[in-house]
Amino acid sequence: MVGSITVEGVRKTFTTADGDTVHALNGVDLQINAGEFVTLIGPSGCGKSTLLRLIAGLDFPDSGTLALDGKKITGPDCERGFMFQNHTLFPWLNIYDNVAFSLRARGIYKEKKDDVAEYIRLVGLEGFEKSFPHQLSGGMCQRASLARALVGHPKVLLLDEPLGALDAFTRMNIQDEILRIHREHGMTMIMVTHDVDEAVYLADRVVIMSARPAKIEKIVPIELGHPRARSSQDFLAYRAEILRRLHFGGKVPDVEYYL
């Protein structure tokens, strides 16, 4: 199995427009095993998206190292697929050409041509090959974007809140599909999310991050088999624990009487 990610002592600061320095990541260590599904969750400003972009190679850390299978990450690469919150499909290409983009860019389209149709089928978009992104719904675009990220067989798939902008039903549907793809293809998946349910439903481990200081607060392994029932006792217990860690546990009101 390939696709393990090592993050060691990573720090990253940004300078705001006012000239202040903001610590986006303040010393983060994280080991992600090959084939694992990890979700990063935390309040906004905790640096979870920054961490994902560093793993993708889209940004570089101020200090510390990131490595894939022991090899230092120096820039973006098709080994690490990336899916943005907005589908970022190229509007000038139809769905087929969007999915085929990676193969064409790397000059391996001729040999791997069949993969395009296969991945379009995998995400349930057969029949829409000739459609342009603006003709499809948000959910369908996100599926196409998933197919585009997968077609190059990345070792790691990085998902930056890919389902955040979708409605609840579409979101749950695509979650199941992501899980199925994860199981069938065995790649490592790292997903940033705001949604505690999503984090518990998908992940082998949930990484909870805190905003100040921006670092990993706690890693919660989810020891539940798949498929997970969203309303089972165990599921709710994990959910409650994560909410408590995020300080959203709330106070149980002292009820004097029930009506």
Binding site: C78, R106, G152
Partner: peptide
């Protein structure tokens, strides 16, 4: 949009 360039880089362009 910078995102188009970023996504194309992660796709190996």
């Amino acid at each position: 949009q910078n995102a188009y360039f970023e996504v194309s880089r992660t796709l190996g362009a």
